[in-house]
Design a protein around this nucleic acid. Structure first.
Lengths: 254, 254
DNA sequence: CGCGCGTTTGAACGGGCTCAAACCTTGTGG
DNA sequence: CCACAAGGTTTGAGCCCGTTCAAACGCGCG
């Protein structure tokens, strides 16, 4: 069906290594980010006066497969994704899991840990990642005048919740193919908002993860991809997705 | 199957009128709540020093069927449920809807409206309700020293998110009967935490609402109820639920 | 190289949806 | 007081879609 060889050659330049090569990342090795970088990442327009501009926030590197947060771990702050992609999931008592979201650059992690002072979901790096930590101590210090920091975190949390709810409702479409179609649209939009191509991208997650996100099995995800390929709407080479017709993809989710 | 007449008589005392009679509520007609009442409702243990105890928060009465919040409406604050039950839902572009939660006494509403300054979901009263409003102006005023108010709201939001995620994952069980069983357990626990009987309660929502919450059809919900009745785990008389064996109900969700 | 994992495809089963009908309750108006 | 309408609930019959089980292939890693 797919000509793997020629496809692979044609798209070799697009392929991102799943593990960092450790040879090409000496350029931004600072270990701290400024408040301004945080605001830019979150796309937070502060109508407030700028204070505490001198604050620095420690970064945290993660290798593919490492846990950013673990369920039950004591809350020690929020994290903003600076680089990479992760998956946020909750595991049921009987082993059944659900992937809540796939956080990427600009997304906020850990806001479910404020209640009960411990995180309520696992977050695992799908690729090498770079996070920025907002310590709990700074967040909630009523002493210093960084009320703005808490407000920004609050605002960003609200956005994450909103988008999670949207994704939630997207899942609810009856047909599984429609769910997959909407998932691809969502990924396309997210890549576009990060400056990448909305038509051509590499999915950072496995079919199994997508299935656990959309509440279908691996096989169903795979079959949905194949169906979309058959209809000429997309092309698929493993994790590389090529959207041929956004209109067709839109009209597909009924 | 069910002997409606005798059942109705036996449980007449339990039945709550869906619309208030307007004859029995002259006792708490104050139109304002204190900060202390808010904290009690939210079960917020403040380790902080108590200030601004003089603040009063305006209440808002809702009749059954009225909207508490509407999607797209400009954000004007958060609300805490003082009395009654509501449903929070998002409506898809194609009319498909999903019920996110059924807020009851002590739950927080509107935290999805902070991002974009407009609410992202509809909230409708299932029974007559009494809400307490936390105005946006007080929430975010960096002038006054009510940082604690914002922190409390933040904390409560985190709790709501957490519980929504839990409910979300509960939905994920494959069998629809297990979803209904878990839903009943969840309602039982909520009623118990409010001081009502965990074994015997009136569901405030329709089968359709339950279906839209669990992502199944009305008929499936009804059939699941019937199946649980057949097994002797519960009895059902319309919206009145009687849990005969919590253990059986627990073991039923696989 | 061989093993494990991710992906794809097929075949058959079964559970939930759709369509349909009946019953009960509640509210409205004659 | 009764007739009627509208909506909530229950149950049945048939069908379709997604799951389950199974097999095959490619890739990356030891």
């Amino acid at each position: 069906m797919l000509d793997f060889q020629t496809q692979a050659q044609a798209t070799a330049a697009l392929w991102q290594p799943r593990t960092s090569r450790r040879t090409s990342t000496p350029k931004s090795d600072e270990r701290y980010s400024t408040l301004q970088e945080l605001k830019t990442l979150l796309q937070y327009e502060d109508h407030q006066h700028n204070d505490n501009q001198g604050d620095l926030f420690r970064r945290r590197r993660l290798k593919e497969g490492q846990s950013a947060l673990m369920m039950g771990q004591p809350f020690d702050g929020l994290y903003v994704v600076r680089l990479g992609t992760l998956k946020s999931l909750i595991t049921n008592a009987d082993g059944g899991m659900h992937v809540l979201s796939f956080p990427m650059k600009g997304n906020l992690l850990g806001f479910d840990g404020i209640y009960k002072n411990s995180y309520m979901s696992d977050v695992v790096a799908l690729t090498d990642c770079d996070l920025i930590r907002i310590p709990a101590s700074e967040l909630f210090s009523s002493q210093r005048n960084n009320n703005h920091l808490e407000h920004m975190a609050y605002w960003a949390s609200s956005r994450e919740i909103t988008q999670e709810q949207m994704a939630y409702s997207l899942t609810r479409s009856v047909r599984s193919e429609a769910r997959v179609a909407r998932f691809l649209q969502s990924m396309s939009q997210r890549f576009a908002s990060l400056g990448y191509s909305p038509n051509r991208f590499i999915l950072p997650m496995t079919r199994r993860d997508i299935g656990h996100h959309l509440s279908v099995t691996v096989e169903t995800v795979s079959r949905a991809f194949s169906a979309l390929v058959q209809l000429g709407i997309i092309t698929v080479y493993f994790r590389e997705i090529n959207i041929l017709s956004h209109d067709a993809l839109c009209s597909f989710d009924k």
